[in-house]
Nucleic acid binder design. Structure first.
Lengths: 244, 244
DNA sequence: ATACAATTAATTGTCTGACAATTAAAATCG
DNA sequence: CGATTTTAATTGTCAGACAATTAATTGTAT
């Protein structure tokens, strides 16, 4: 662990960086215990508050966890898929909202990525995945469902589709991306007619995966994208009209 | 901003959460200035070090930036694509290394996602993208190139391919994913024969994009994946042999 | 000897108060 | 009016203290 600090940059940031490097490079392995705050103060030649600020930076990225008490201290955290999702989602969500990504771009990206794993899903999806998808389709066809709930169910449907590919890396990347786009997708108002269309496409898509027909599944996803794009456009136009 | 803190959880974590919520929900907009540390201490009823730990947590996620001086303070940060990349890459890299994702899975995910945008690239790639790709192919054919450099150039090539899709969301998601897999891809040793094959596929792939032939581009990517998978397997077998 | 209780030590969490460094604005002076 | 100095506000860092928590150790009674 590098202990040479330059005095002109934030000390806590440099210390956090040094420890992060040690973790990423494998010098500090999972569940390894870091020196106590007092020891770190000594080795880096800074005060304990400064060390603590550094440790909080790392804790914010789920790189370490801390525990009080006799055998307490800071331990290198095994980054779980769930934690990683969470961070990716907040990051992506902020990125999309702050940089004013338009609906069209977000939608295009989402469906492009989904098409990426539909071929694998057609080969590997389990009965559980198909059941989960059909369950969501059923929920979507319930009368009186709010737009938000319909949208949430839509996400769950696509999540099952993605998980069907049986590749955790793909699931991780896509789930993060799809969830991050939720705020944008949530702007849509789903009236009765498009809901019918979407539900029909979802049903057919599930059938296609059951039959291992990847090509048809891709075509159906493209159709879904077109409907979604149209709905988004309509919604935006309606808003612009209400505004002006 | 919620100021009600429960005494049994980390105060700095709760404060960070409260401010983060205010940012994500839009109560605090980009470039808004947070109250000074002294003011935050008062409103939350905690000491300044505690407030500072909370702010460092947010800074670690690039949610705020701080500046010293008269008009200094903590400001809500506009998350840039670069910062978001950086965070996604460290998170994904750690996730892959700590959870022992195998080469096959990582490789499959990478190429699946690349196929996701090749269709768009075939439509939209500019002359600049094609030029960048050809430049990397040229570098790859230089004699005496180290495996690591070859690999880095490979990433640059695929990065140009992805950017060619002209969708910043797609670029962001994919660039992060591809870079995170670098440590795994770097294990490969590229001997002369596979290099030739790869370079040939890269050239043909560039041509396909230039001609707008999406179908052929996808096929070529699949061939590239097969070669990469084979190389990975060979490398791993060689390592296992050397070990045992 | 064993089960249970009290003590102890190590460690993080928090507070107080102080001073240094930095920065922009305000005041001063030529 | 322009350049320089002063001032005020703010973050960065430090030192020392005490509270809270936790596990190990010690002590004690059965």
């Amino acid at each position: 662990m590098k202990t040479q600090l330059s005095p002109d940059r934030d000390l806590s940031a440099q210390i956090a960086e040094a420890i992060r490097d040690a973790i990423v490079s494998g010098q500090l392995i999972v569940d390894a215990r870091l020196p106590s705050e007092a020891e770190l103060s000594d080795t880096f030649g800074v005060s304990r508050p400064t060390v603590r600020e550094a440790l909080k930076r790392l804790a914010a990225q789920s790189l370490i966890r801390t525990r009080r008490g006799a055998t307490g201290g800071a331990y290198v955290n095994r980054l779980s898929y769930d934690e990683a999702y969470g961070q990716q989602i907040t990051t992506s969500t902020l990125l999309l909202s702050m940089n004013e990504v338009d609906f069209h771009t977000a939608c295009e990206a989402r469906f492009a990525m989904e098409r990426a794993c539909v071929a694998l899903s057609a080969q590997r999806r389990s009965a559980d995945h198909l059941a989960a998808m059909r369950a969501e389709v059923h929920r979507q066809s319930q009368p009186g469902l709010s737009d938000e709930s319909f949208c949430a169910s839509d996400v769950a449907f696509h999540r099952a589709l993605v998980d069907g590919a049986g590749n955790p890396v793909l699931s991780y990347q896509l789930a993060g991306a799809v969830e991050a786009m939720q705020p944008l997708m949530n702007m849509i108002t789903y009236s009765a007619r498009p809901r019918e269309q979407i539900i029909h496409l979802h049903t057919t898509l599930t059938d296609a995966l059951e039959n291992g027909d990847a090509a048809q599944a891709e075509t159906l996803l493209t159709e879904l994208e077109q409907i979604t794009q149209m709905l988004g456009e309509t919604t935006l136009q309606a808003r612009a009209k209400a505004k002006g």
